[in-house]
Design a protein around this nucleic acid. Sequence first.
RNA 1: GCCCCUGUAGUUCAAUGGAUAGAACUGGGAUCUUCUAAGUCCUCAAUGUAGGUUCGAUUCCUACCGGGGGCACCA
Length: 553
Amino acid sequence: MLEEMRHAVREALESAGVSDIEVVFEHPADMVNGDYATGAAMRYAKQAGRSPRELADTIVAKLGDVRGVAKIEVAGPGFINVSLKPSVIWSALDAGRASGDEWGGTTSGKGRKIMVEYTDPNPFKEFHIGHLVPNALGESVARLLQFSGAEVKRANWQGDVGVHVAKSLFVLLEKNITNPTIADLAAAYPEGSRRYDEDPAAKAAIDVLNKTIYERSDVRVNDLYDKGRALSLEHFETIYKILGTKFDFYFFESVGGPRGIEVVRAHPDIFVESDGAVIFEGEKYGLHTRVFINRLGLPTYEAKEIGLAVLKREAYDFDLTITITGNEQKEYFRVVMKAMELALPELRGKLAFKTNGMLRFAEGKMSSRAGNIIRGDDLIANVASAAKERSSESRAENHEALAQKVAVGAIKFQILKGASGKDIIFDKERALSLEGDSGPYLQYAYARTCAIIEKAKASGVSASFDAAQETSELVRHVYRFPDIVAYAQEKLEPHLVATYLIELASYFNSWYAHEHILDGGALQSHKVAIVEIVGKTLKNGLWLLGIPAPEKM
RNA sequence: GCCCCUGUAGUUCAAUGGAUAGAACUGGGAUCUUCUAAGUCCUCAAUGUAGGUUCGAUUCCUACCGGGGGCACCA
């Protein structure tokens, strides 16, 4: 139908003497302007030598015959607004209701193999709330791609070697801790970091220790390292489980480093010696120079990244790998990407990165070096306890489990509601409030649909649309869901889904407040069908955001 | 100094070059004997400044002002 409309508009424009035409139909932001609108008449008025409104009238005459269209109007400066027949809307929603979990999904990614790498915490350091940002974004991006029919693999890249590890181990060794706890690890890094900066002797010792760790040349160090690493990874795993992420691949810098060095050494034409280090001269490409192998012969983050690309390739024959990384690494990535394209030409065009914003605070900065960080699991626990206070009258069987789902939803939504790449101002008050535009708002609306459907079932009310009914803004908004998903997939932007869902829940709650659904009237079944499709849309939308959708709250 | 990102109600976010710039929080007010008040309804309030391109600019361009990030052996 959309194709038919585009075709008709194109023909009308052609006969008005316009060439080189691209017709775009969009969903008007304000629903009083119909289901679809195009600004084609305004865009091509000049070329046609006529006024926008006059040209629009000509186009409308042509559009009159399109099936499924109820009303076409020329409005404002020359918009052509199209309203669909209610039967078109109802049958689309009915198909959605019948299609199970597929509702809203697309096929644009069918046959593609995509790896998404995200979260990337470092063993021996805290999993702090800064890691929640790439995790939330990456998980949602992965799900958006899955919902396009692509085969998606999730990958996690972890810095299990490097100076940060040496700083932690230095402190643990000094204190003679042989069986560290998570708390020991959490305390060791900031202290080691401080010593490294303030005490030249400690710095020298840590640098030596760093090399020792890479070389695995000391039994006592190895033992402590292995224990600490395992403990960290186990701890991370408990957090992933709460967040709803399951990785297919884990890559480690200890493995990627040597592989990166191989690649760098094999391309002396691309990577050159300078001042004892091996560098890539980015200036030739409008970028800047970066060190890939340092003076001690150890791989820097840059070389490790190249090694990672090799490891990913060996693990999975991807068409595309997307790395989710912090904004502060944007320019670093540009340089490394350029170097990789040159050194690994077979991966050209298959590497992509997407940056997430930094989590900032209303009150001051957080830094794991300074030690004033908020741990990811602590934040979830804090928000969960706030959620639990509100759940005193909840119908959920397990208040503890519900509180955790609400907490994860609240935190993830706060991260995903804005466009990716922009910094996120973290406000603890706001995170704890659970009101307004929030994850819990969406979850609550979904739980509400479940409650109505349950009650309808119990009282023997079936669900079916009455195609003779007029449509409302609520159902026409539901109708847009697949297009919103497609757009979010194209842009890889979860926030498009997030803002859509807030509008949907708002329409639904408003309707719910004014309309008694199970009123025993003739339209009961019709209204239950609406509730069902709204619920399914919320459920699929929340899934795309990686937010749990509890059925009872 | 050079490069990149970013400035929208008091605050946190939306707005595919379009229509009256939408929400939420806060402030002021209303609303539960009726399917869940984590809800609903009313109300106050914004495009940093100056130019330019365009039929039309929050959106694109230039300058200025403010905020953030990056720029050789950290990740």
